[in-house]
Amino acid sequence: MHLAELNIGRLLAPTDDPRVADFMANLDRINGMGKRMPGFVWMMEGSGEPGTGNTEACLDGDPQFVANLSVWETPAQLQTFVFDTLHAKFMDRGKEWFENLVQMHFVMWWVPEGTEPSLDDAMAKLAYRETHGDSEDAFGWDWLRAHAAQ
């Protein structure tokens, strides 16, 4: 099994607004770094237009709602990318670019090797986690760490 993850956020401004320019200018850099990391398997891609990442995949028709969906071989490899690379510095700056969401915005789940989950599949996992909490079917970092130790 591989590990899928979905992270959603709502930008404070449209993608061409100066308030999110630094975020947009670094999308290709950070995504490219992730794709070169050991354990990276797949990432939902946008149009390929430089500096747009996957921002075309807006949620609920709202172009400021953006999603990152990827698959990794192991939790440890995803964790290294998220917390131990330049990605972490940009994640720390998230409040500069993203609204503070009250609803659930992150989920992980297991997928069979070779699976490229759809955004609809991922959003269903997110909704499941928000409704039912962490479980074998949809979980966050704390649940994963607690159950990896068993």
Rank of each mutant, 00 (worst) to 15 (best):
M44D: 10
N31S: 09
D121Q: 10
R10E: 05
V71N: 06
Q79F: 15
F83P: 03
Y128W: 14
S70G: 09
D92R: 15
N54W: 01
D92E: 11
Q64Y: 06
A67S: 15
W72V: 04
F23R: 02
E116S: 14
L119I: 06
G39T: 09
E5V: 07
L11D: 06
W143G: 02
P14G: 09
N100E: 12
N68M: 03
M91V: 14
T55K: 00
E99L: 09
H105C: 11
V107T: 06
W141K: 11
P50E: 09
M37C: 10
E49I: 14
M123P: 07
E96D: 07
Q150A: 14
W141F: 04
L27C: 05
P50D: 06
M24T: 03
G61E: 15
G61C: 12
D121L: 09
T15H: 12
F98I: 06
P14M: 02
G48Q: 00
E136M: 14
G133D: 02
A146S: 10
K35Y: 02
M1L: 15
V107C: 06
D92L: 10
M1S: 12
L144E: 10
N54L: 07
H2C: 09
S70W: 00
Y128A: 10
K95R: 14
G51Y: 11
G53W: 07
M91G: 14
K125P: 01
D17W: 05
N26V: 03
V102T: 13
W109A: 00
A146W: 05
P75Q: 05
F139G: 00
G51N: 14
W42N: 03
S118R: 07
N100S: 15
N68P: 01
F83G: 04
V107H: 05
K95G: 15
E56S: 07
G114E: 09
R129F: 12
